[in-house]
Structures are given as C-alpha cells and as structure tokens.
Design a protein around this nucleic acid. Structure first.
Ligand code: SF4
Ligand code: SF4
Lengths: 133, 133
DNA sequence: GCTATATACGACTAATATTATCGTATAATA
DNA sequence: TATTATACGATAATATTAGTCGTATATAGC
C-alpha cells in the first residue's frame, strides 16, 4: 500500500547517475543496467519515456546513449510521478468515476483532503531533491 | 501508484458509520454491506480485524454486530494503516531488505526522507479526521 | 557498403498483489 | 433446535506491476 513503482525507482536511479555525471558525454542503457543491476530492456523503455518527455536527451548508434537535458530543479515530483505512471491519487475517484460506492460514499471528502496534502507535498519537491541531495 | 487499498476504504466507511451511529445498539456486517454496497464476506473479515485490534467491539449471535469501542481521536492514521495492511513505506527497503539494488542504491536516503515526511503527515492525522469531519 | 552497437516501440508473458468468495466452526437468541 | 451472526483459514478471480521479445531505425567505424 502507498508504494511507488519499481519503474519510478529505476528512473530516479538512472537520473541521479546522469545528473551527477552530466559533464560526461553520454551514458547507455546497458552501462546503467550493469552498474545498478536493473533489467536492461526495462530500463531502456524507461529512458525512452524520459527522453520523449525531454527530461533527458538521446543519441542513437554506437557511442550513443543518454544525458540530462533539463534542470531537475524545474521538475516537481507530482509532475514526474504523473509522467511515469499517470494520474496520481490515493483512491481512483480522484481522476476516475467508475467506483461502485461513489454515489453514496461518505469518506470521499476527507480522503480527498489527504490526497491534496500528498500532492501539495510532492508539488513542493523537485527531482533535484532526489538526484542531488 | 501510491494507492490505499479497498480494504482500508471499506474499513473507513464502516468506521465512519459506526462512529456516527454510536448511540445505536449494534450494526451487523450485513447491514453495512447492503447500505454501502460492499461485499459482505470481505467486510466481515475487515470488521473482525478491527475487532481483534479493539477498535470496535463485536457481539455474536442474532441481534449481534459491531459498535465503536475506542475514541477515533486516539488512533493515528499511520497506526491504522499498519494495522490494516502491515508496514507502510513507499519502497520495500523501509521495512524489508530483500532488494537487489540495496547495496549500491543511490536513492535510498532521499527516498527515505520522503517516506518520513509521509509518515509524519499520517502520524499527525487521526481516524477522527476521516470518520467525523 | 557492411557490421556492430545503440535507441524506439509495440506486443507479449510472468510474477505479484489485491480483491473477493467459500466452507466450516462457534456463539447466542428466541 | 432453528436461525442469525461473528471467527477464521483456504481458495479463487482479477488487476497491477515487472520483465521479456521481436523488429525497426539510426549512426559510428571500418
Ligand atoms: S473514496 Fe469513496 S468514491 Fe472514492 S474510490 Fe473510495 S469508495 Fe469510491
Ligand atoms: S530505494 Fe533503493 S534499496 Fe530501497 S527498495 Fe528502492 S531500489 Fe531498493
């Protein structure tokens, strides 16, 4: 319960590495997967998503790989989580209304207050809080 | 990602009902399951757990059921979540050390800071914040 | 041009966690 | 003693997450 996904963790590990080696040329998915013991194909897809979102820059071909392309201070964690995993809420009704209980739900309001607290907390936090500190 | 479970939601709905009808005698699992459209057997097990933890009191037999037995102001949400779902952490290594990456993990410290922030937030919140307000 | 290496991307499978159900036992009321 | 309700372990169904595979494309170096 209340877990972040492995996908997000792998993304953060990779981003931290790229951030702290940003003076270096490029770093490939393979290099990162070996260094941090992350399944290569899975990490590759994660890096592709980060690239598509212009958080990192990708270069194809031999000697290719990835490097940081956006200041991690400018990306807040709510946004980052939603880029990686879609809408973020501790219950589904925050972004989807298919809940059986919705019509007569007595806890939706208090639950949404909690939701907003968590979102606010992550809004105030940036990628740099994880990739730097 | 970062979701609470249905089990917890059902528990909160039931507790809110019991709290707001605490002058009433008893309320059965069946009554609650019909009123809130929650699978009866599932809700029954949830109520049994709450009873075992002395959050509610149970009475067997016809005319039996449940009622609140502990002031919801005295139970913080971290404790409540952990009663219902076990150790709470956004990553496993907060309470379990079977992670492949653990030895060379570069994000554990920053992740744990987030973890602590979430726990602190829920420590400051009580069951009454959901069952009353 | 050819080969090797690396990203891009969709489809698929496997593993795990969550949600729900079933069967049986026990207690108490009337 | 029949009925209603809790207690509890085992099992099944479903959803989510994690990981793999196949194929295409780009490019560096020879
Ligand atoms: S808070 Fe209520 S409406 Fe929202 S998902 Fe939970 S049960 Fe459904
Ligand atoms: S933070 Fe690091 S050690 Fe902890 S679970 Fe995630 S990858 Fe594993």
């Amino acid at each position: 319960m209340l877990k972040i996904t492995r996908k997000v963790e792998y993304a953060l590990i990779a981003l931290r590495h790229l951030q702290q080696n940003k003076q270096a040329k490029l770093c490939s998915a393979k290099t990162l997967s070996l260094k941090y013991d992350i399944p290569q194909e899975l990490l590759a897809k994660i890096l592709q998503k980060l690239s598509k979102e212009n958080i990192i820059l990708s270069v194809k071909g031999p000697k290719g790989g990835y490097k940081i392309s956006k200041d991690p201070n400018t990306i807040n964690m709510t946004k980052f989580f939603e880029i990686m995993e879609g809408p973020m809420g501790i219950v589904d009704c925050y972004f989807d209304s298919n809940c059986e209980q919705l019509s007569g739900c007595t806890i939706r309001e208090p639950i949404n207050r909690i939701n907003n607290s968590i979102r606010t907390m992550f809004d105030k936090m940036t990628l740099a809080d994880i990739t730097f500190k």
